[in-house]
Design a protein around this nucleic acid. Structure first.
Lengths: 401, 401
DNA sequence: GACCTAAATATAAGATCCATATAAATCTTC
DNA sequence: GAAGATTTATATGGATCTTATATTTAGGTC
C-alpha cells in the first residue's frame, strides 16, 4: 500500500511510471505521443501509466479545448500536466544571521519568499528550529498552502553535513545544524550551504566540474566533480583549512581558513590601516566601523590601500583556483554569496595571477548572479532533484481521498 | 539478438538475471534457496533465470553428489557455479619501462602473469601496442586460454585519461596512451595507472574515502571520494602540480610535481651531496649512480644525509595529506608502487608533521602491500567491477554453439 | 520399507506490455 | 453540410514474466 517496497511484478510499472513523471516534471504540458517518443513505450502503456499518475494525484488532464492546439489535423491528443495541487517544495537558508525561505512549485517556480534576521547565539538550537518553523509557516500562508502540501524541505546550514545530515562535534556547528528535522513538518533534508550554492550554480550553468565558493562572512566550497557533489564521510569535502597549513613557514595570523572574503577584507583593513603609510580614505572612518563594503567601494574609487587588499584577496583566490584546477580538474570556479556582486575586481586580479605555462586550460573565474539567494535557490533545486531521482518515494497531496 | 536493447517486456527478466549473475560472481557455488534470499524472488523464478544463465554460458550446474552437502535432510538442492570457461579478464600495466600482465578468472583469481621490460621511447606507440598484444598472447597461452576467452582487458597507463579513454595533448602522454584499443583483441578499457592503484586499494581495504599515491618514478594520485573514483573532464583529477605553485615565493628547482618519491630521492641525493658538509656513506659511490634504493638503505643505517632526504619526503607527503584530508575529507592515504616496501620511514616522519590542533581526525598514512603489482591488480579489479556493473553487456564464451 | 523433509516441478492465475484492429474526434475539401 | 483524411484513443488478443499453490522427487532417518 505504501509503494516503497514493490513486488517484482510491479517493478516494471514503477520504473515506467517514474520515467514518465520525470518527463512531466520538466515539461509544461505533454501528450501521450511525446511521452511515447521519450520513453519508447506504446501508446496504450503510456496512457495506462498516465491514468495511474492521475489517480495518484501527480498529474491532471488538461482539457483546454485547442489552447495549445499545434496539431492541425487528426484527433486532438489528450494532454497532461503536473497537478498544481500535488505539492510544493520548501527551501530554507538557515544562516548564522539570516533565514531565507522560498516556497516553490514542482517546476521550481518561486511562489513566495521571506527573509528574517536571526540572532542565532541568543536563540540557541531550539530557537533556531522554532524560528524556522514559524517563518516557513508564514510563507506557506502567504501563498495559500498547507504544511501538508510540502513534499520536501531542504535546509542549508553553515556546517559540514555528512550523508546522514549530521555535523562533526563543535559548538558552532552544533548550533547551526539545529536539528531541523524534528522542528519542521514532513520530510526534511539538511545540507551544507556551500553545497547548495554549488547545486544552484550547476542548475544555472551545467558544467560537470565546477567549484562554488560561498564566501561572505564564512568560507565554504561546494565541489562538483564528474557531475556529482562531493561530500566526504564527515561532510568535510570543500573545507579549505589547508590554505593556511600550506603557507606555513611564514606565519600569517589573520588568514583564517574559515573566514570568507568579506570577513578577510574587513579584518585586514582594520588591522593594517595603522601601519599603512600612504593616503587612504578609509582612515576617515572609525577603525571599528570599517566593513567589507567600504573596502570594495574605496577600491573602486582608486584607493591604494583598498586596492592592495583586493589584490591580496585575488592572490588567495588564485591559489585556491590553482589547487582546484590541478587536483580536481575543475573547469569553473564560481564566487557566490552576497559579496558576489562586488567581487569582480578580485576576480580580475586573480585571473592575472593564474599560471599560464602549464599548457593546460585555466579555470574560469566567474561571479555568481544569484547574490544572497544562492543558498535558498540551491535548496529548491536540490529538493526538485531529489524528487526527480525517485518520484515514487514521495506521495503527492491526494487528489481523491 | 544482441541483448543490448531489450524490449520493455523483457527488461524485468534482464534485471533479475543481472542480479543473480552478480550474486554468482561473488559466490563460489550457490543454491536456488540462497539466491532466493538475496534477490527476494520465488524459487520458480530463480530456477528459470538460472536455466537462462546456464544456456547463455555464464553458469553451470555442479552435481558433486554431496561434496558440499551441508543440508542433512530434505531433497538436495541444485547447486550452480560460475562456468570456468565463461571467460577471463586481462589486466595490463603499461608503464614507461615495464609491462605487466595478469590473466584472471571471473572471481579475480590470478591464472597467469608475465612481466617484461619495455623501451617505450625506442618502440613508439606502435611498438608499445604490438608488445602489449604479444605479451598478452603469451600469457593467455601459458594458461591455455584463447583470445576470444577474454571478456575485457583493462590497461593502466601513466597519463591522464578522460571518460572516453583519451589523454590531453602532450608527447609523453600520447606515447603512453598508445591506442591499445586498436591493438588488442576484444573489448579494451584504458585507465590512468594511479586510478587503478586506487581501485586495488579500495578492494583490499574498503574505505569510501581514500587517496592512493602512486609514487615511484612518476607521481600520480587516484582519489576515491564517497566511494567513487574522481576523474575530471580531461582525466586530470589527482594531478599534483599545485604543490609547487603553492610553495611559490621561494623557488625550489628540484621539486617537480610530476616526480615520484623515488625520483625525488635520487635527484635530491645527487644534487645536494656536494654541498652537504657532514659525513655520508653515499659519497663512497659515484654521484651518477646513486639511486633511491641507496638513499633508503643509507637512511635505515642511520646516515644523516639520507635521513634528511627522508625527512624532506615526509614533509612533502604531510603537505599532500593535509590538503587531501582538508579539501576532500580523505580518511586514508595509501602510498603505492614499487617503492611502497621501503616507504615506512617517510610515513613515520610525515605522521609526526600532521597538525594535531584542528580537532579533526588525522588521515591514516599507510604503505600499500601490493608492491609493484598495484596497477595490474587494480586493472583486474576494475575489469571485474565493470562486468559486475552490467553483466548483460558482456557475452560469455558460448557453452553450446 | 515407511516416514520425514526440503527442494524441484507442474499448473493456474495475475500483472504488465505489445501488436493489431476498431472507434472517435478534428480538419480539409467539395 | 457530407465525405474523406488524419491522428489519436480504446478495445482485444497474445506473449512474457512472476507468483501462489499443489504435487512430485530425492535424499536421509528410523
Amino acid at each position: 500500500m505504501n509503494g516503497t517496497t514493490a513486488r517484482s511484478t510491479q517493478l516494471l510499472r514503477q520504473i515506467n511510471s517514474d520515467a514518465l513523471l520525470r518527463f512531466g516534471l520538466q515539461e509544461q504540458v505533454f501528450t501521450a505521443g511525446e511521452a511515447m517518443a521519450v520513453t519508447g513505450l506504446t501508446r496504450a502503456t503510456v496512457l495506462g501509466v498516465c491514468d495511474g499518475l492521475v489517480d495518484a494525484g501527480w498529474l491532471e488532464e488538461v482539457d483546454d479545448g485547442r489552447a495549445g492546439g499545434h496539431t492541425p489535423k487528426g484527433r486532438p491528443a489528450r494532454r497532461y500536466q503536473l497537478r498544481e495541487a500535488a505539492g510544493v517544495v520548501v527551501g530554507l537558508d538557515a544562516g548564522e544571521t539570516y533565514f531565507t525561505v522560498i516556497v516553490a512549485d514542482l517546476r521550481g517556480r518561486e511562489l513566495g519568499t521571506r527573509r528574517q534576521g536571526i540572532e542565532s547565539h541568543a536563540l540557541g538550537r531550539e530557537g533556531r528550529g522554532a524560528s524556522a518553523r514559524e517563518l516557513i509557516r508564514l510563507t506557506l500562508q502567504d501563498v495559500g498552502r498547507a504544511p501538508d502540501d510540502v513534499l520536501l524541505t531542504v535546509v542549508g546550514v553553515p556546517a559540514p553535513i555528512d550523508a546522514n545530515g549530521m555535523s562533526p562535534d563543535g559548538e558552532f556547528w552544533h548550533l547551526m545544524n539545529s536539528g531541523f528535522a524534528s522542528h519542521l513538518h514532513g520530510r526534511v533534508v539538511v545540507e551544507n550551504d556551500a553545497n547548495l550554492a554549488a547545486v544552484a550554480e550547476r542548475a544555472h550553468e551545467p558544467s560537470a566540474n565546477q567549484a562554488t565558493l560561498l564566501t561572505g562572512e564564512r568560507f565554504g566550497a561546494g565541489l562538483i566533480v564528474d557531475g556529482r557533489l562531493l561530500r566526504g564521510p564527515r561532510g568535510g569535502a570543500g573545507e579549505m583549512r589547508f590554505l593556511d597549513t600550506l603557507t606555513a613557514g611564514k606565519f600569517v595570523p589573520d588568514e583564517g581558513g574559515a573566514d570568507g572574503f568579506g570577513a578577510l577584507a574587513r579584518k585586514w583593513a582594520r588591522s593594517r590601516i595603522h601601519s599603512y603609510e600612504g593616503e587612504t580614505m578609509l582612515r576617515q572612518m572609525p577603525e571599528g566601523e570599517i566593513n567589507a563594503e567600504d573596502v570594495f567601494q574605496a577600491a573602486r574609487e582608486g584607493d591604494p590601500f583598498a586596492e592592495d587588499i583586493i589584490a591580496r584577496l585575488g592572490a588567495r583566490l588564485a591559489r585556491i583556483a590553482v589547487v582546484l584546477s590541478s587536483l580536481l580538474d575543475i573547469e569553473r570556479v564560481v564566487i557566490a554569496g552576497g559579496i558576489s556582486r562586488a567581487i569582480e575586481p578580485v576576480l580580475e586580479h586573480a585571473r592575472s595571477l593564474l599560471p599560464t605555462d602549464t599548457g593546460l586550460p585555466l579555470p574560469e573565474l566567474v561571479a555568481s548572479t544569484f547574490g544572497a539567494q544562492v543558498v535558498v535557490k540551491g535548496a529548491i533545486e536540490s529538493a526538485l532533484t531529489q524528487i526527480k531521482a525517485e518520484p515514487h518515494a514521495f506521495l503527492p497531496r491526494a487528489a481523491r481521498s
